Amino acid sequence: MKNLLALNWKMNKTPSEAQAWAEELKTQLTLGDAELAIMAPAINLQALSWFLKDSGVAIGGQDVSAHESGAYTGEISAAMLKDVGAKYAVVGHSERREYHGETDAVVATKAAQAQAGGLVPIVCVGEGLDVRERGEQVPYTLAQLRGSLAGVGADVVIAYEPVWAIGTGKTATAEDAEELAAAIRAELHTLYGEAAESIQILYGGSVKPDNIASICAKPNVNGALVGGASLKVADVVGMNDALK
Rank of each mutant, 00 (worst) to 15 (best):
A150T: 06
A150D: 03
A150G: 00
G151F: 05
G151P: 08
V152G: 08
G153Y: 00
D155V: 00
D155M: 00
V157R: 04
I158G: 04
I158R: 04
I158E: 05
I158K: 07
I158T: 05
A159C: 05
Y160E: 10
Y160I: 11
Y160T: 09
Y160H: 11
E161D: 12
P162M: 13
P162S: 14
P162Y: 09
P162N: 11
P162A: 13
V163C: 01
V163Y: 01
A165R: 03
I166S: 05
I166E: 08
G167I: 12
T168Y: 09
T168A: 11
G169Q: 10
G169I: 10
K170D: 15
K170F: 14
K170Q: 15
K170Y: 14
T171A: 15
A172N: 08
A172V: 09
A172K: 01
A174M: 15
A174I: 15
E175W: 07
E175H: 06
D176E: 09
D176K: 09
A177H: 13
A177S: 14
A177F: 14
L180F: 06
L180G: 06
A181S: 14
A182E: 07
A182H: 06
I184C: 08
I184A: 04
A186F: 08
A186W: 09
E187V: 03
E187D: 08
E187H: 05
L188F: 14
L188Q: 13
H189E: 09
H189K: 12
L191K: 03
Y192K: 00
Y192L: 00
Y192S: 00
G193R: 13
G193T: 12
G193H: 10
E194Y: 10
E194A: 15
E194L: 15
A195P: 05
A196F: 12
A196I: 14
A196D: 15
E197F: 00
E197P: 02
E197A: 09
S198I: 00
S198T: 12
I199K: 02
Q200D: 05
I201C: 14
I201K: 04
L202D: 10
Y203P: 05
Y203R: 01
G204S: 05
G204A: 08
V207R: 03
V207N: 01
V207E: 02
V207D: 03
V207A: 04
K208N: 11
K208I: 07
K208Y: 13
K208L: 12
P209R: 06
P209E: 04
D210V: 09
D210A: 12
N211C: 06
I212F: 07
I212W: 04
A213L: 12
S214I: 08
I215L: 13
C216I: 11
A217V: 08
A217R: 12
K218A: 15
K218N: 15
K218F: 14
P219C: 12
P219W: 13
N220K: 07
V221C: 15
V221A: 13
G223R: 10
G223I: 10
G223M: 04
A224L: 02
L225S: 02
V226W: 03
G227E: 00
G227L: 06
G227Y: 01
G227S: 02
G228C: 06
A229N: 02
A229V: 02
